[in-house]
Design a protein around this nucleic acid. Structure first.
Lengths: 345, 345
DNA sequence: ACGCACCCTGAAACCGGTTTCCCGTGCCGC
DNA sequence: GCGGCACGGGAAACCGGTTTCAGGGTGCGT
């Protein structure tokens, strides 16, 4: 005769029965949400252990109308800046017993919208968002449901969202000044998307440094993508008064820029000096090693998770906007121009 | 007088009431799970639209005892091979209306175990696992619950799990043969973790090629980590009969190996030729560009999601184990040895 | 001795969908 | 004309925890 016992997973009712208590008491004993006599608590814990009880998270979440899950929305997880950040977030969240749902927007606002809706439907506990637009389209629904949103990398125009960013403008300003200090007069800029905060801030950092030095800006837009940056860099290098140095606004665009420089047969830094925002692992492996403006990714990602947990644990009401400093790492790609020139154009 | 109306989100009961039907009918109309007269269906859809109804996914999942979520477990999302894979998986899953929960094991079996338990408690629909050990410890609980598991990159010793891998052994064999064909006689190998499938297979590919050529293997273990690989490469380069070529078993270890080569002041490929498994974006940016054995990451990731969806949709019972071919990309880091030597040691 | 407060505990409601079960109607075939 | 079957739709059970509510017991103060 075949074994006909039910083979469903053990539930809290099974635990309660075995311990001779009600499900309510079992729940309280297991969660420590209310005082249970040590006698009964011991019996419940024993029963749970003996039966190998594992609570069904779906039921818990339904009742609580909240999940211990952080929705993380980035433009592209394949970008090492994001994958490093997500790595650190996952570690930090996991230590606190939280999970990560990962979403890629591809910089598309419609995708961002639909992901935010999805995360709302899922009742995630919080969202960390690297927004595709300055408005952070779609966050309202979350915030109305009481789901906290933390802007990452890019600030959002909403007074209710916390933010963790770094000082892009000051950083790129310093990076540009560094090249100016080396004697460069024609400095190009391969920019990101000017419609998002990082893009705009980095551009402004470049512009302000050029303005302060009385130099004329040379800007091409690379959309934060390698291919577009390659085209942008090619355009810069094709200009009549070719730049003797180029600032690149992020790591993926540095790839494209390097390709364009190679293609043009130019030597770095003799023909053209290079400096980039972000410091991917390969920055010091290329020849010559790339001068980089590193974002404090670990600190930013840890801070983002910390802000999230503070919110969901009700430990904080005020909005916090952290701005972390960037770090300039000088390497050989940024040398002086071949012959320092007067601004003669 | 303040607005005192309830402000809770609209539920299916609200939709049903407005449409003048029962919640059951509303559910059926919205999901198309059963035939509903077009008259009523239209009314339900109108009501849902007018009220801006969004179903609460937690409730649905609780009832179904399943989530449209794929748990993805990798050793390290910051590894570009994984972040690229996860990127593609997310795209494919999202197109099918599925989400991704991301977990990093750091190659630790205990973390893998606890993540698998967590995913089981969460009743994910399926798991894609790049396992930290050959046994795939912890998958039993999932499989017993009827949650399909797809092994990614690394096969698992369990007859119930599908797998998507690439032909590591053949690939590395070919890569090694390429170096042998260039005239190298002392070829070192910076290996991964021999306890996981990819590590073992790549090592065996190297060994078999060396054996076939009658050459003596020179192996150091790099644990799939840059730091360990740097030490390993340093050891190889410090040996009496220094290798004139090195095969590296993945991209993170290529970073470490390159560092060691730089540190030793050796020219590539003149002093030492290099070739690596994986083809990260920077492989053609370093000088000289790295000869690489590329994994078909996109195809693998897409296949993994496809296998998952076939399972959860009940379209397939048989176990499938896909093995995709790798692609050898010859670049300048693999040249002939300075003076071809006889095996004189 | 009585009253009140507090602590534990269990019964039952609850979260919000989905699914089962059952009934009523209408059509078809004999 | 009647039995049976197919189909549409509603009531209620259900998923499995958590939380509210209320009651019983104990201890302390007066």
């Amino acid at each position: 005769m075949p074994d006909t016992r039910e083979d469903r997973p053990v539930g809290i009712r099974d635990v309660a029965t075995r311990a001779g208590v009600s499900p309510a008491t079992a729940s309280r004993a297991l969660n420590g949400t209310a005082t249970v006599s040590s006698e009964l608590r011991a019996r419940v814990l024993e029963a749970a252990g003996a039966l190998g009880y594992r609570p069904n998270n779906l039921a818990r979440s339904l009742r609580r109308q909240r999940t211990d899950t952080i929705g993380v929305i980035v433009s592209d997880i394949a970008n090492p800046h994001h994958s490093e950040a997500v790595r650190v977030m996952e570690d930090a969240a996991s230590r606190a017993g939280w999970r990560l749902i990962l979403c890629n927007t591809d910089e598309r606002v419609d995708k961002q919208r639909s992901y935010l809706e999805l995360l709302a439907d899922e009742r995630v506990g919080a969202v960390i968002l690297s927004a595709a637009d300055a408005a952070g389209s779609g966050t309202d629904a979350l915030l109305d449901l009481g789901i906290p949103v933390v802007a990452f990398d890019r600030v959002i125009d909403d007074p209710r969202v916390d933010a963790v960013t770094c000082d892009n403008q000051a950083g790129v300003h310093a990076l540009t000044e560094h090249l100016i200090g080396l004697g460069h007069l024609r400095i190009g800029f391969v920019g990101g998307r000017p419609r998002v905060a990082t893009g705009a801030e980095r551009l402004e950092g470049y512009r302000s440094a050029m303005r302060a030095a009385g130099l004329r800006p040379m800007v091409e837009d690379g959309e934060f993508r390698a291919d577009d940056a390659e085209v942008a860099a090619r355009r810069l290098l094709g200009r009549a008064g070719r730049p003797t140095a180029i600032v690149v606004a992020n790591n993926t665009m540095a790839v494209g820029t390097l390709r364009a420089v190679r293609e043009a047969g130019l030597a770095v830094p003799r023909d053209v000096a290079l400096a980039t925002v972000d410091d991917p692992v390969w920055a010091e492996l290329v020849d010559p090693p790339l001068t980089a403006l590193a974002q404090p990714v670990r600190a930013m990602a840890e801070a983002a998770v910390r802000l999230v947990l503070e919110r969901v644990n009700g430990k904080r009401q005020e909005v916090v906007r952290l701005v972390l400093p960037m770090e300039l790492r000088f390497r050989r790609s940024s040398g002086p121009p071949r012959r320092p020139l007067r601004a003669s154009m």
